[in-house]
Design a protein around this nucleic acid. Structure first.
Lengths: 246, 246
DNA sequence: TATGGTTGTCTATATCAATAGACATTTAGG
DNA sequence: CCTAAATGTCTATTGATATAGACAACCATA
């Protein structure tokens, strides 16, 4: 396998302590320290990355701020949290079912809703005239009280008027559709990209600046192939992975 | 739609000039400046991001180093390159066909090959006994002479002995399989994650440190469902997107 | 209770990142 | 040919980043 012996880079706009924090976070998620439940000692990490111990301490302080580790004088730096949710992407992708039993509590919050005219791009995706009214929902999904996705999603307004209330009450797109008479829908395309999180997503997803988010742009249709929903969802990349099963 | 009016963050381990460089690179890829073929003037970008003009200049210098823009005194900062390749992920995913006519020249380079015993994880994925021999290929794929993916891929050694030569000559997994008697294969699962690029990938993919890579872990089987290949491929996130069509 | 291993804190120094302002240089266009 | 608009260069200052070394405080355990 891979040794992962990639060194850290200087003077490139990303502080050493942040690079090291990202590497340690990934190692924790990867289970590298499962044997002890602890991160290696600071002096050891400093040697591994070829930096001063103080630099490692800055990285660990950042991880402690995220609630991932907790340092205890005399004992070491204990791992507090370690998770990576898996989201299957299939023809029948649904958020709640996708998480399955990976989390006990699941909730969907409606942050904001608005009616607006469809942009040219959106209209083309939803197969409606440009400028036709659409309902936009800004939603936040949580699993076990931790935010796992921040979505912006659009529906044709003439067909799904009132979906903001249906979602607000149910916390589920699937249920909201059902309340409006659509019993089934299918995922026809998903585009996946990755970028740095921007300000709003940082706050909503409770990320530390510089964090990476996975972005999924999804189109759902009814069983007749008529587009019913277009959604752009952002996920913290260190907590989430997508699985595409064919 | 979104205004994109997310501001830039200070004192979080990622230098302002790098955040701004990433934002401008994304705007270029997004076609925001297609009307003029130029990036907005430095003073204008400085106002947009709320920073000093010198900070913007650092960002533009980094983009010029990547060959994305070129500044000309008196004229402005011209866009040199702008691309985002799309990779469809389907049951019959193939690298070369996936790029299609998005690039004129495509090539696949074999960087390294080795025979080794399968780890427990790999053996489980390939449905072979742990420790059974596998052939590992380290490959680099290019489109129009620019690197677009860095892959590590494993094959059961008893069935595909000599595939390193077949790949080396053909530069194509599909052709190499065919040379060894396998005429067709299917993609059964793809896992997509994103991280910061590590040292080796930075070099091979010619990225600037701090860059984001998309990671796809893929399992291919023959038409009978027997695993034939497991691959971990890394793509520059600002050049590539995946599309899943169901 | 003594000891080794670990984290916590302090001081000092050098370099990078960012701001601020001034002015030179080049290009495009009236 | 002049002017406006844009990039190029220089100096100076401040705060963040990183290194270096020393020592204190704490924990587990022999």
């Amino acid at each position: 396998m891979d040794t992962g012996q990639a060194n850290v880079h200087r003077q490139n706009g990303v502080a050493l302590w942040r690079q090291i924090a990202d590497r340690i976070r990934a190692s924790i998620a990867n289970g590298d320290y499962d044997a002890t439940g602890k991160v290696p000692p600071e002096f050891s990490l400093a040697a591994q990355f070829g930096v001063n111990r103080h630099t490692v301490r800055s990285a660990l302080a950042a991880l402690a701020q995220e609630g991932i580790v907790r340092s205890v004088q005399g004992r070491g730096t204990l791992i507090e949290r370690k998770e990576r949710l898996n989201f299957p992407i299939t023809r029948r992708t649904r958020f709640s079912e996708g998480i399955g039993d990976q989390a006990r509590e699941k909730e969907g919050l409606l942050l904001h809703s608005a009616q607006e005219p469809a942009s040219a791009d959106l209209a083309a995706r939803l197969h409606i005239p440009a400028g036709a009214p659409v309902i936009r929902l800004e939603t936040l999904r949580k699993a076990d009280r931790r935010p796992v996705s921040r979505s912006t999603t659009w529906f044709p307004a003439d067909r799904f008027g009132g979906i903001e209330d249906a979602y607000s009450k149910s916390g589920s797109i699937t249920v909201a559709f059902r309340m409006l008479g659509l019993s089934d829908y299918l995922r026809v395309s998903t585009e996946v990209t990755a970028t740095h999180a921007d300000g709003a997503d940082l706050a909503d997803l409770q990320l530390s600046p510089g964090a990476i988010i996975l972005v999924a742009r999804a189109l759902n249709t009814d069983p007749d192939g008529v587009p019913v929903q277009y959604a752009v969802s952002r996920f913290p990349a260190d907590m989430v992975q997508f699985t595409i099963e064919n």
